[in-house]
């Protein structure tokens, strides 16, 4: 009696495993079809996915047969995708001016703003430069005249800041021992 029970339980277990495996193959087949339709152009992908999933249900046999059918469909989807690309009308690549033309007003405004910002920053930099030189670092002198003479004639850097003052930068040489300044 116990042997019959064990046998029946074993058969039930095998049937359950087979069902699970077949179900897994069917789910895998559906996944394969969904992946295959990604190859197709967007306009056609939905239609073929619905059609193939509907037909997958009608494919007779176990899950492995459905999976084989789905893999075949994938090959067909590849062919269809290739043909769709080949028959697509080739559009001329638009030039950069053609692509930007609709936004010309916005681009002009942005360009103008950038130009004004750049001019403002340049003016600010010049003013800061001039005021920094006027503050007087060591070895510099500010003159309202037209030049400077020193006994050693160092390198002179003369700039023309605003407000009419000439800034003369003197890079003095280090003193040599034993000589008069």
């Amino acid at each position: 009696m116990i042997h019959y029970l064990i046998g029946a339980a074993g058969l039930g277990l095998v049937a359950w495993v087979v069902g699970e495996v077949a179900g897994a193959f069917t789910r895998l087949a559906a996944l394969v079809i969904r992946t295959a339709t990604r190859l197709l152009p967007d306009a056609k992908a939905d239609r073929w996915q619905k059609e193939w999933l509907a037909e997958l249900d009608a494919v007779p046999g176990l899950g492995i047969v459905k999976l084989r059918w789905a893999l075949n469909v994938t090959a067909g989807a590849g062919v269809m995708a290739y043909e769709a690309r080949a028959t697509r009308p080739k559009t001329r690549r638009r030039s950069i001016t053609e692509r930007l033309a609709p936004q010309s007003d916005e681009l002009f405004a942005i360009g103008l703003i950038l130009l004004l910002v750049a001019a403002y920053l340049a003016q600010k930099e010049r003013t800061r430069d001039a005021s920094g030189k006027r503050a007087g670092a060591v070895g510099r002198s500010t003159l309202s005249g037209s030049g400077v003479r020193t006994s050693r004639q160092p390198d002179l850097i003369v700039s023309n800041p605003p407000f009419g003052a000439a800034v003369v930068e003197c890079k003095t040489q280090p003193r040599r021992p034993g000589r008069n300044p």
């Binding site: 193939w52 075949n72 469909v73 067909g76 269809m80």
Partner: peptide, 12 residues
Amino acid sequence: LRSGTLYPILAR
């Protein structure tokens, strides 16, 4: 015909 052959033909 196999599915991989049939559907491209139907589409064409």
